[in-house]
Design a protein around this nucleic acid. Structure first.
Length: 173
DNA sequence: CCCTAGCGGTGCT
DNA sequence: AGCACCGCTAGGG
């Protein structure tokens, strides 16, 4: 509540979509979190009391449009800046690889491990995917287990299945 | 299908 | 420092 807290201020804004109400989190650096709709997600507890500054409302407009596109399997365009500074160095390397996977493409956890230069860190890649604060835009759902199996998803496997199905990806799991 | 061993990052103590 | 947890994988019933 003092000036020392200003750098840490986070705004949480409800983000309605046809698939339910997400919640977007913004730091002064950009979008820093995206929560899937959940039963406990009531608008009142998600919204910050103070109105967000214009820059953040602009980012939120971009995020809203981009998420609508992403949920229809169109490549999101005009994303707001993504603030991924919360991650460790390893996690940020993984997330950078994930962002290069186009809609309809997939990687395995092992392939991502190889791409970040640490081929044996396969389980750790799974951990980094699970720690991804901005699902959908950082498309951790496009990482599958070996042999086209679905693998896990912290946002709920239903969402992973849904997102992949919209992109035309088939899995054996 | 079920184990099991081996693996590396992360967070907690 | 140690330790338990994992969105894993390959190998062997």
């Amino acid at each position: 509540m003092k000036k020392t807290d200003r750098a840490a201020q986070i705004w949480a804004l409800p983000l309605p979509t046809p698939g339910g109400e997400f919640v977007a989190h913004y730091s002064t650096q950009g979008l820093c979190g995206l929560d899937f709709p959940s039963l406990g997600n009531r608008p009142e507890c998600a919204t910050t009391a103070v109105p967000p500054p214009p820059a953040i409302r602009r980012w939120h407009a971009l995020a809203t449009e981009a998420l609508a596109r992403a949920l229809q399997d169109q490549a999101p365009e005009n994303l707001p800046p993504l603030d991924l500074s919360s991650g460790t160095e390893f996690q940020r390397r993984v997330w950078r690889v994930l962002r290069k996977i186009r809609p309809g493409q997939t990687r395995t956890y092992a392939e991502v491990a190889r791409e970040v230069g640490n081929p044996k860190a396969v389980r750790a890649v799974g951990g980094a995917c699970g720690a991804n604060p901005i699902p959908v835009f950082v498309p951790c759902h496009r990482v599958l287990a070996a042999n086209h199996r679905l693998g896990g998803f912290s946002g709920g496997l239903d969402w992973k299945r849904t997102l992949l199905a919209r992109e035309g990806v088939k899995t054996t799991g």
